[in-house]
Simulated scan of single mutants.
Amino acid sequence: MKISLAKTFLRYFILLFSTLILSVLLVSYYVQPAQFYLPLFKVHFFYIPLLLYVLLFALFLSGYFISQLVITTKKAHSLIEEGINALKEGQYQSSIFEDLKKGIDTSFNSGQVKEAESLLQLRNKMIQVTTLTQGNRQTGNKLAEAEKEEIVLKERHRIARELHDSVSQQLFAAMMLLSAIDENSEKIILPRKQLETIQHIINEAQSEMRALLLHLRPTQLEGKTIKDGVEQLLNELKSKIEADILWDIENLYLPLNVENQLFRVFQELLSNILRHAKATEIEVRLKQANSIVLLRIVDDGIGFNKSEKPLGNYGLQNVRERIASLGGTVKIVSVPNEGTSIDIRIPLIK
């Protein structure tokens, strides 16, 4: 970069110095044709020859032009960097893209124009993809009844498998322990550890059952707003489990497909917390900032190590896939024995 600036400065200086010298010589030739070059050396101002003034003036102008070039380049790079960050955050409607268009028309050089045009093309493609994936209310309402029935059937089969693989086995293990205790009740005194084991198994089964019941709820909002659906779910949950649940839900008006997918994601995340987190406090925030929908769920549970495959990984993978289909992002931060926070960002296309 420094070498490039030095070369540019040298080119500016040579061009300006040559132009100024030529101008002085032309004027001198018009006044004194025989010795037109002598004024450069013989004419003095404050004991300084004219040639030195020409040299200093050329240096000054070159420095000024280079400084303006540096300022313009930094501004262009800053705009391009802000545009990249806006794309990363899903802010496709940001005013920074209008500034890039103005820069292309006015102040950017050829290299910066190519970078800015590539960025704008990428933004347009991302808008198209996000628009196609999100759809709108009309598209959502046109979902065929046969497709709905197939979705419901697959969901029921999945829940049946999970009930068989998890709750049924846990309850069977508890029953086997109770049967063994009953057969030997006259001979032995029940150890405390065995009681604690039975209690733990039954508690796990209850948590699993509550989580699976979330999946049996309607996967669509069925005419309700996302605020109504989420708050109803949280109120029901609050009355059934021993945990402090706090929430701050804004009244959002979203495309139907986005509402339904977001509601399904919320069910999945809440189900994971009930199954695995062992949390005593749960905090939920849902709001819209400019053209971004933000969902944040925090719990104080056991957390997990992200370098290892966590419990509920299948559910988290479902969440990532659903949010990715809307053009959004999922950020998960978890600390073992301290809790987990999940931040979801979904861009909205006007």
Rank of each mutant, 00 (worst) to 15 (best):
F46H: 07
Y47E: 09
Y47A: 08
I48H: 13
P49R: 08
L50N: 03
L50Q: 05
L51H: 08
V54H: 07
L55Q: 06
L55N: 04
L56S: 10
F57Q: 12
L59C: 10
L61I: 15
L61H: 08
S62Q: 12
S62A: 15
G63D: 10
G63A: 11
Y64A: 14
F65Y: 14
S67M: 08
Q68G: 13
Q68C: 08
L69R: 14
V70E: 03
I71L: 13
I71R: 12
T72K: 06
T72Q: 05
T73N: 11
T73C: 02
K74Q: 15
K74I: 15
K75F: 06
K75M: 06
A76I: 02
H77R: 12
S78A: 12
I80S: 01
I80Y: 03
I80C: 00
G83Y: 00
G83I: 00
I84D: 05
N85W: 07
N85L: 10
A86D: 15
A86Y: 01
A86K: 13
A86S: 15
L87P: 09
K88S: 13
G90I: 00
Q91T: 02
Q91D: 12
Y92K: 10
Y92C: 08
S94M: 07
S94A: 12
S95C: 06
E98H: 14
E98T: 06
L100A: 00
K101G: 02
K101Y: 03
K101A: 02
G103H: 02
D105C: 08
S107D: 02
F108R: 04
F108T: 00
F108Q: 04
N109S: 02
S110I: 15
